[in-house]
Design a protein around this nucleic acid. Sequence first.
DNA 1: CCGATGTTTCGGTCGAGGCCGCAGCGTTCG
DNA 2: CGAACGCTGCGGCCTCGACCGAAACATCGG
Lengths: 234, 234
Amino acid sequence: MLSDSLLAETAALVGDPARAGMLLALMDGRALTAGELARAAGITPQTASGHLAKLAAAGLLATQRQGRHRYHRLASPTVAQMLESIMEAGTGRRADACHTVVTGPRERAMRAARTCWDHLAGELGVALADSLVAHGRLDLSPEGGALTDAGAVFFQDFGLDLDDMARSPSGRAFCRPCLDWSERRLHVGGRLGAALAARCFALGWLRRCDGSRAVSVTEAGRRGFRDAFGIRDV
Amino acid sequence: MLSDSLLAETAALVGDPARAGMLLALMDGRALTAGELARAAGITPQTASGHLAKLAAAGLLATQRQGRHRYHRLASPTVAQMLESIMEAGTGRRADACHTVVTGPRERAMRAARTCWDHLAGELGVALADSLVAHGRLDLSPEGGALTDAGAVFFQDFGLDLDDMARSPSGRAFCRPCLDWSERRLHVGGRLGAALAARCFALGWLRRCDGSRAVSVTEAGRRGFRDAFGIRDV
DNA sequence: CCGATGTTTCGGTCGAGGCCGCAGCGTTCG
DNA sequence: CGAACGCTGCGGCCTCGACCGAAACATCGG
């Protein structure tokens, strides 16, 4: 059967601890080298190289040569969404046992705000999406084109070049609802979500935590999210 | 790391061909016995029993005893969504090679209309969602409560007992947008989607294809979908 | 009470695949 | 031009887990 082996092969690729660790390390959307990924997964570079070749052959990873380095990144937001959905389904039964026991500061920060592929997720990501919908700037409708007129003005004022995004030939959806792993509600993905996150980083509102997908909100960000989006308690 | 092993363990469970086959056989939402699943996966019952125990322990499957039979079903729509998202990501690179070659009538029927866990998917599922949104009966908004007043009247007339659904204590979302594997667009899931699909089966509009998740539209269904939803060419 | 059937447990085999050491290739820099 | 560095391919080791046969257990029908 066709879909049978497709499902098994893809899942088996993610099912190896070393490969899972590397994929997870790539969830923040950056491109990393084989050596860095090897360290992240706790294996030697030659082992990592073999894994990366398999993942790339399956279309889960995209590689890019640059000098003597070879950068690897997730092939598409679809892959990132798959990883989140696996974790979401996996937490089903064991959420109680795991979370209450191991909840450390690292996990707390991840739930508060993190990047999902290239856009914002966590409590902050969901709050942002809620705010945009509540103010009529976004509809988060199925096909993702539902930026309202008021929203277009708003995002332009916020510093996003919507015309440029519209011109870009990318086949990626403009605005895609993305199911939040920890919050289990939707946040804003797609090109709009990516641009929004990038702008927040550029404004100095957010800072990446080292070696993690978690992001921290700066003092300027706290003011900014309050004044521009009406979000408090971030 | 916590999420690391969670991702790997869950994916590894799906990654075995035998287990993947059984999960895929359960995608239509029915509950099957260990023997039936063993036959579906091409393994002996005792091997299947071991696999099912693991899947149940991980919270991916829910089991239910009834006499000397033991029925297994997917634990939640979240699991079904995970499986679809894995197949979606897996098709990424190989879609061209596989689909053009192997596209048979079976695959064609699957794309036209199928069940996804317990609601409708495929071209028909997406067309249904589009129609409902276009007529202002549904918003398919993020949290899923966005049944419009006109929609409530419409669904009541169509034969769904919305009051009963509202009363049921299920923690499941009322109306959840579900990403369609083949169409890559959203269709209607959640309790509303399930009730809608059940009603279509009860009306004799749809019939399950034997041994597959595909469903076929009856002549009555053709008329019904046209008159009630404005869908042609089904 | 006794077979028949569905399901689970146990023990043992075996094959697949992850892992590393080593070696070869390409790139960068002194 | 040679050395250092990053990456990849190959061969061998070894562990893990899927698989089945046999047998025990539970349930239903006669």
